[in-house]
């Protein structure tokens, strides 16, 4: 084994890969969330579909997409490799085990939380990414603009999916899992890289909490909004609360 493989398969090396990919995925979440906020725009999906078209066709984005695939791939692979090693380190368990008295639940259940995210990811990618990129069975935007008429109407696909109750449930459950995953993961990623300084750690810790809540609540708000307050075309229903009506009409 060369020094590189030896380093990357050591217990610390695997965690370094975990943290680098995990923090990279955090940056992806920011882009994904900000882009998706266009779902809330009241234009029948024009902005969102144009954005999706750009993301799906721009060569630079398509290249970075591979980095994203690798990021997920390595993160998930190392998750299983580490979990196996960690489980094997204690063959005989305790009769009594009071870990809740010395640590946070999230930190001890990253694997379970990650697995829920993974299940979500498969469904999510199949339904939107696969159908847009490979299956090509999405409705088209149509309309008079010749340039955009041929774009996939991903907006409509999203909005109609978000009217299926179990789909909304899966999304919300996955976002809760993601929130807890990041609650521990954000800070943990810095710690793994050795970026723990008594001056900055408190800041990183609370930034992580804010990040976890904002990102997961942000993503969860989308299925909930469409399920509760709009019809299948994304128009706000007339019996939605006045507050929603006025916020929606502002965009």
């Amino acid at each position: 084994m060369s020094w590189i493989t030896k380093t990357l398969t050591s217990s610390i090396g695997r965690k370094i890969i975990m943290s680098v990919t995990g923090l990279f995925l955090c940056s992806f979440l920011v882009i994904h969330l900000v882009g998706n906020l266009q779902l809330f725009k009241h234009d029948g999906g024009a902005a969102f579909n144009a954005y999706s078209h750009f993301m799906g066709t721009n060569p630079i984005i398509r290249t970075i997409e591979w980095v994203l695939v690798l990021g997920f791939g390595f993160h998930i692979y190392e998750a299983f490799a580490l979990t196996r090693r960690n489980k094997a380190a204690r063959g005989h368990g305790y009769a009594q085990w009071k870990a809740e008295q010395n640590s946070e639940w999230t930190s001890r259940n990253m694997g379970i939380l990650g697995t829920i995210i993974l299940i979500f990811l498969i469904v999510h990618l199949y339904n939107f990414f696969w159908r847009a990129r490979f299956a090509g069975d999405l409705p088209k935007m149509g309309g008079v603009d010749l340039e955009t008429a041929d774009y996939d109407n991903l907006y409509l696909a999203v909005v109609s999916s978000f009217h299926i109750w179990w789909y909304v449930l899966l999304y919300v459950a996955a976002q809760i899992s993601l929130g807890y995953h990041l609650w521990h993961g954000f800070r943990s990623g810095f710690q793994t890289l050795g970026l723990n300084h008594r001056k900055y750690m408190p800041l990183i810790k609370y930034a992580g909490y804010v990040f976890a809540v904002v990102v997961s609540a942000g993503f969860a708000s989308m299925p909930l909004y469409f399920f509760l307050f709009t019809n299948e075309r994304g128009d706000v229903v007339s019996n939605a609360p006045a507050f929603i009506q006025s916020v929606a009409s502002a965009f």
Binding site: S11, I12, K15, A88, S103, E104, T192
Partner: peptide
């Protein structure tokens, strides 16, 4: 030391913090 630690079969760190607490 890390090579020996891994050879002995200890697990990796998940930054849980039970160790420092105990």
């Amino acid at each position: 030391m890390i090579e020996q630690m891994d050879k002995e079969g200890f697990g990796a760190c998940s930054n849980i913090g039970s160790c420092a607490a105990e």
